[in-house]
């Protein structure tokens, strides 16, 4: 019973008015948007890591340079996912 009350409290908080309904939709779509934003960078980082490992295995003497460049590539790719994360919070609160 108490648990039901809690669920109801959350639901009531979310569905208070029309503005809240918009909020609700924003929260849902924000989560969805973040999920979408994570797909591309995920694949990209995988590709970068794979290529870096391959080239490091092929030429171990250039491992230092490859590692630096790999981190740079990951930083640029990851930025997209992180912007998605920030937009997710922005949509929820702005």
């Amino acid at each position: 019973m108490e648990a039901l009350a809690r669920i109801a409290k959350v639901a009531a908080a979310a569905g208070a008015s029309a503005a809240d309904a918009k909020n609700n939709a924003a929260a849902g779509s924000a989560g969805f948007a973040y999920g979408l934003a994570a797909i591309g960078p995920g694949i990209g980082i995988g590709l970068i890591f794979g290529s870096a490992i391959e080239s490091m295995a092929r030429q171990p003497e250039s491992a230092g340079m490859v590692r630096t460049t790999m981190f740079l590539g990951i930083a640029f790719t990851e930025a997209l996912a992180l912007i998605g994360f920030v937009v997710f919070i922005l949509l929820k609160y702005a």
Partner: peptide, 8 residues
């Protein structure tokens, strides 16, 4: 992107 990368 620099700020967001670190912060996020």
């Amino acid at each position: 992107s620099m700020a967001v990368r670190l912060f996020a």
